[in-house]
Nucleic acid binder design. Structure first.
Length: 444
RNA sequence: GGAAGCUUGGCCGAGCGGUUGAAGGCACCAGUCUUGAAAACUGGCGAGGGUUUGCGCCCUUCGUGAGUUCGAAUCUCACAGCUUCCGCCA
C-alpha cells in the first residue's frame, strides 16, 4: 500500500510514476474522497469532543449531587447527528482504504520504462550456453527416460502437475538441499519451516489480496464443501476466516514475510534473513495454453525462497546482495544465465524494483525465468504494520525483500537440458553429487 | 466434534459503568552519581489519525463487530483467536 500522505503531498507526481507501469490513478476520485473525508472527519470529531466533555461534566456533577437533567438533554440532542456522522466517516474511510489497497507500488527511479517483458533491461550475462554435437532434447523427452511421468500425474490430479520417480526425484531433493545449505552455511540466512496454509490477513499483508484472489487456491474443510460458494469478499474483509478458509501459499514469501506482521522488530536484530523451502501453489488462471508442455508452469512446484527484513536505508544494498545469493546457486551448478532488470510495465504489483534471473534452456534456445528478486520498500510493511524502532525510539516501517533462490522445478529442468548427453543420460553437476550418494550420472 | 478458561501498551500485569489512555513492574530514553560501566536515585516514555507555521488542541484505540447508556476496558450479544481436557487422527 502506498503512503496516503505521499498521495496528498504529490498526487500528480505519483500518478505519473504509476502511469509508467500502466496503472491509471483516478486522481479526481482520490481528491473527491479526501475532500469528503476531511469535512466529515472534522465534523465527526467536533461532535465527539462535545459528547465527551459533556459526559465528563455529568459525571462530575453527579459526584457532587447536582442536577444533571439540563446537560443530559443537551447531549441527547447530539445523538442522531453524531451517529450519522460516524456512519458517514466509516463509509468514506472504507472507500479510501479500498481505493488505496488496489494501487500498485511506485517504481524506483532506476526502473526502465516499458510496457512488456520485451523492454526489460539486460544487466549481465553469465556463463556460456553449452554446444551440443547432437540434436538437443527438451526436459520432457530427457525426463521420460529417467522418471518424469506426466501421464500418472494427470491421472492422480490433472493438468499442470508432475510426478518424479527414482533418481530424478532424488535430484530434485538434492537441488533443494544444496540451495538450503548454501544459503544457511554461506549466506547467513536462518532456515525456517513455515505453514503452507495461511489466513487472509497474511495474503493481504504481502499484497496477494484483495486484488489477486483468482491466482490462489483456497481451502474448504470436508464439513463445509457446500459453503465454498458462500465465501465472499465480505468474509475476506471481515476476516471471519476459520479453518475451512485457508489459502495455499503461492510462494514462501507470504508466510515468511508475515512473520513480522504486526510487530516491532528491535533495531539491533536487523537485518532479518530467512530462507524457506516450500511447495508453492498457483491456480495459473489466465495462463491457459502457455507452457503447457513440461514442468515449467505447474499448479504445484517447490521453491527455495530468500526473505530479508531490513532497515529502509539498507534495502537496495540488500537487494543486490540477495540477487548475488541467488546467482551463486546458478554459478555453482554451472548453468548459464542472465540477469534482467524488469521494466515498469512488467513488474509485480508490490515491487518497487525487480531483477529476474533467467536460465539458459537449450531446447527452447532461450533464457527462461528461474528467479525473481524484488525490493518492496515499505509497500508490504505498511500493509502488515511491520516496523522497527528507529534511533529516536519511534516505530518506523521496515523494508521487505525477497527472491527465489531458486525455483527448484525449473532448476531441475535446466540441469536436465544443459547436462544432457547424446545417449540420453544426464551428468550430475559436481556440487550435487554429495547429495546423490556420489552418483555422477543419471541414466535409465 | 464436545467442554472449560482466557484475549489490556514493546513485554508482564492491575483495573468499582463516570478526568482510566488505563495502576504497578520490566524494557527503553535522558539526567545525577562514577575514570568508565553497573547499581542506586530523578525525570520521561503506547499506537494510529485529524488540525495547526509552531506551542498545542482534538479524535480513535483494552481480540473483532454489533448493542445498552448522557458516558463502556468494565454490562449484553455474536464472531474470531489462543490455552487446557475429552473424542478422532499422522
Amino acid at each position: 500500500m502506498l503512503d496516503i500522505q505521499a498521495l496528498r503531498n504529490d498526487l500528480a507526481g505519483i500518478a505519473a510514476r504509476l502511469a509508467t507501469r500502466g496503472f491509471v490513478l483516478d486522481t479526481a476520485k482520490f481528491e473527491q474522497l479526501e475532500a469528503e473525508r476531511k469535512t466529515i472527519q472534522t465534523r465527526t470529531q467536533e461532535l465527539q469532543a462535545k459528547r465527551n466533555s459533556s459526559s465528563k461534566l455529568i459525571g462530575q456533577a453527579k459526584a457532587k449531587g447536582e442536577d444533571v437533567s439540563a446537560i443530559m438533554a443537551e447531549v441527547a440532542s447530539l445523538g442522531d447527528e453524531l451517529k450519522q456522522a460516524e456512519a458517514q466517516l466509516g463509509e468514506v474511510q472504507v472507500a479510501l482504504q479500498q481505493f488505496l489497497e488496489v494501487i500498485p507500488n511506485t517504481p524506483h527511479s532506476c526502473v526502465p520504462i516499458g510496457k512488456s517483458e520485451a523492454e526489460n533491461e539486460e544487466v549481465r550475462k553469465v556463463g556460456t550456453p553449452p554446444q551440443f554435437d547432437f540434436e538437443v532434447k527438451d526436459h520432457v523427452s530427457i525426463g521420460e527416460q529417467l522418471g518424469l511421468d506426466f501421464d500418472t500425474a494427470t491421472k492422480i490430479s490433472g493438468a499442470r502437475f508432475s510426478l518424479l520417480k527414482g533418481g530424478l526425484a532424488r535430484l530434485h531433493r538434492a537441488l533443494a538441499q544444496f540451495m538450503l545449505d548454501t544459503h544457511t552455511d554461506r549466506h547467513g540466512y536462518t532456515e525456517t519451516y513455515v505453514p503452507y496454509l495461511v489466513n487472509a490477513d497474511s495474503m493481504y499483508g504481502t499484497g496477494q489480496l484483495p486484488k489477486f484472489e483468482r491466482d490462489l487456491f483456497r481451502t474448504s474443510s470436508g464439513d463445509s464443501i457446500g459453503d465454498v460458494i458462500t465465501n465472499s469478499q465480505e468474509d475476506v474483509k471481515e476476516n471471519t476466516f476459520s479453518i475451512n478458509k485457508f489459502y495455499l501459499i503461492p510462494t514462501a514469501e507470504v508466510p515468511v514475510t508475515n512473520m513480522v506482521r504486526d510487530s516491532i522488530v528491535p533495531l539491533e536484530q536487523l537485518p532479518l534473513k530467512f530462507v524457506a523451502h516450500t511447495p508453492c501453489f498457483r491456480s495459473e488462471a489466465g495462463s491457459y495454453g502457455r507452457d503447457t508442455r513440461g514442468m515449467i508452469r505447474q499448479h504445484q512446484f517447490d521453491k527455495v525462497e530468500l526473505v530479508q527484513i531490513v532497515h529502509p536505508e539498507q534495502s537496495y544494498a540488500g537487494l543486490e546482495e540477495l540477487l548475488g545469493h541467488a546467482e551463486t546457486i546458478l554459478q555453482q551448478l554451472g548453468l548459464p544465465y542472465r540477469v534482467m532488470k524488469l521494466c515498469s510495465g512488467d513488474m509485480g504489483f508490490s515491487a518497487a524494483l525487480t531483477y529476474d534471473i533467467e536460465v539458459w534452456l537449450p531446447a527452447q534456445n532461450t533464457y527462461r525465468e528461474i528467479s525473481s528478486c524484488s525490493n518492496f520498500e515499505a509497500f508490504q510493511a505498511r500493509r502488515m504494520q511491520a516496523r522497527f524502532r528507529n534511533a529516536q525510539g519511534k516505530p518506523e516501517l521496515l523494508h521487505t525483500l525477497n527472491g527465489s533462490a531458486l525455483a527448484v522445478g525449473r532448476t531441475l529442468v535446466a540441469v536436465l537440458e544443459n547436462y544432457q548427453q547424446a545417449d540420453g543420460s544426464v551428468i550430475i553437476p559436481e556440487v550435487l553429487r554429495p547429495y546423490m550418494g556420489g552418483l555422477e550420472r543419471l541414466s535409465r
